[in-house]
Write a protein that binds this DNA or RNA. Sequence first.
DNA 1: GGTCATCTGGACGGTGCGGTCAAGAACGCC
DNA 2: GGCGTTCTTGACCGCACCGTCCAGATGACC
Lengths: 188, 188
Amino acid sequence: MDVLTAARDQFWTTGFAGTSMDAIASATGLGKGSLYGAFGGKRELFHRVFDDHCSAAICSVSRQLGGDDEQAFERLAAYLLAHATACAEPSHRGCLLAKGTAELAGHDEVVAARSLEALEGIQRAIAADLEACQRNGDIDPAADAQQLAGLLLTVHRGLEALGKAGAEESTLRGIAETALAGLPRSSR
Amino acid sequence: MDVLTAARDQFWTTGFAGTSMDAIASATGLGKGSLYGAFGGKRELFHRVFDDHCSAAICSVSRQLGGDDEQAFERLAAYLLAHATACAEPSHRGCLLAKGTAELAGHDEVVAARSLEALEGIQRAIAADLEACQRNGDIDPAADAQQLAGLLLTVHRGLEALGKAGAEESTLRGIAETALAGLPRSSR
DNA sequence: GGTCATCTGGACGGTGCGGTCAAGAACGCC
DNA sequence: GGCGTTCTTGACCGCACCGTCCAGATGACC
């Protein structure tokens, strides 16, 4: 495991404030002096980890939702339902994007900006999928894909919050299905 | 300002880990020994504050959504739109329920349980409003009010998360309106 | 006013943390 | 092998924090 992955895992588990540099040194196998030498400080290391994680999240959703028009709705449904299931896992540490934002966005502008950027990236991927659904006739072509993408992103983030509080898988999947059912279907 | 309110405000602003007992002592005007004598410890104080806040949140949503059937939909729309606006406020510290859950639910079972309980209470109030909408003919009576309430609660929580990342008011209000527009209307 | 019981505040002890730095290790060159 | 340069480590420092505790303050009673 490389240094950044080990550090990310620590921050992911115990949060920024709850993770000591000693813990990161242990997890990475590096001395603290080397960590400071390489990254500058705890905050800078977190930014690096957070940035990489946001980039990976955008790539992941783009990969999951990208594809032909015919299966676009199936991919979208699978994405939301899988996310609902993941959020309900007891071992689920919650999303680093959500945790980092909740913990730090209020007083760390770098995290706030990166977080917003990541959410916008995820929304674009959802909107692209919705447009594919529209071209394929699964969603009403007159509907505003950007607005619907914003709603689905909000549901996605809300599922994260409810899962964090311990909601059950069936509850969360029901919510995802209700959201999908409420999308304007094409009248054909 | 009383002790619990002052303590809540500190925790609300700087989170659990980021709030020192010295800061709470200053804000409340009490000595630390008195705080420990009255509440037992930092964690116990936070539990008390969190519990009171969750109770108040449930009361608030019940008050906002409670009323006659005729205006039920208007009240629901006003509730979501006002929330969207509130989430976008730069001065908005985020919801203590969301912040506390994100920070602590993963390793504090009391907070996790109280958080889930609070969310369930909010969902009940939303469901009751939706049922009033159904009786009034604003929502399809064949729709599952509990499922729709779960979805709206998820949107509500998701708006919180997006607002925390700095999303704009018009974006969040657009999302709230899209969610309302997607509710199954009565065919009359 | 004096005495006793209770309460209060903040100094203090012990621990943890982020960051620094010098001793030692590792590496490259002659 | 010796020398010089660079890198690494983790002990250490200064500071922050939680919880404890006792000297002093307060209040009730006679």
